[in-house]
Amino acid sequence: MKLTVFTLCCVILMGYAPQSLSRPVSYPGGWTVMQKNDKNAHSLHVHYSPTAKYSIGYRTEYWREENWQFHGAQLNYLVKRHNAPASQANFYLKGGLGTAHGDLGVPDSEPQLAAFADIALDWETRRYFTSYENRVYYAEDIAKFFRQKARVGIAPYIGDYGDLHTWLMLQVDHITGERDNISVTPLVRFFKNEYLVEVGISDKGGILFNLIIRF
């Protein structure tokens, strides 16, 4: 029920406000480093874009409560980009394949096959931002769950190229499985040149800190 209501809200939101700044696909020859932390997990994704349509890279995640980690390859594919005079919208598909290691510190814990699939949509103008992303995780006996998140954001001022840009955002996360819950995180996003930082705190008390650097 929670899942259905949340998904419906996201679909409606995307309908009213037809981007992710973090762009999982860069320019040909571009490298990106994404380090993200929230109440649930820490992740690191380093990717390289051979073309403007897809990127490939390494991903690792550590899920704190369940105490397991993922290491694997991730492919990000830009399905469609719509450029309008004052807005941009993107539709991405992402997938990852690797191994999951549970019960860290236990000598006989064997790595298991792990995979995830992801759909991401975003739309933004210089003033408004909205995005939706979901992901299905499969890690044999370690974890199987569905996660989705939606964001809305507004820029309190419009900066010129090269200025420090600031966005106020609200992120809603829904995760199924053992920790089935919905959390709301107000956050602030700053970016300047090739550096982007996000800081926030959820209604459950979890700290969000994300860092993205493009090369």
């Binding site: 981007q19 320019y27 450029n83 807005s87 933004e124 900066g159 840009h165 493009r214």
Partner: peptide, 15 residues
């Protein structure tokens, strides 16, 4: 068209 985000537009300089 689509030029709305400074962080993304860095790709123009790179390219």
């Amino acid at each position: 068209s689509g030029l709305v985000c400074d962080f993304c537009a860095r790709s123009l300089e790179k390219v």
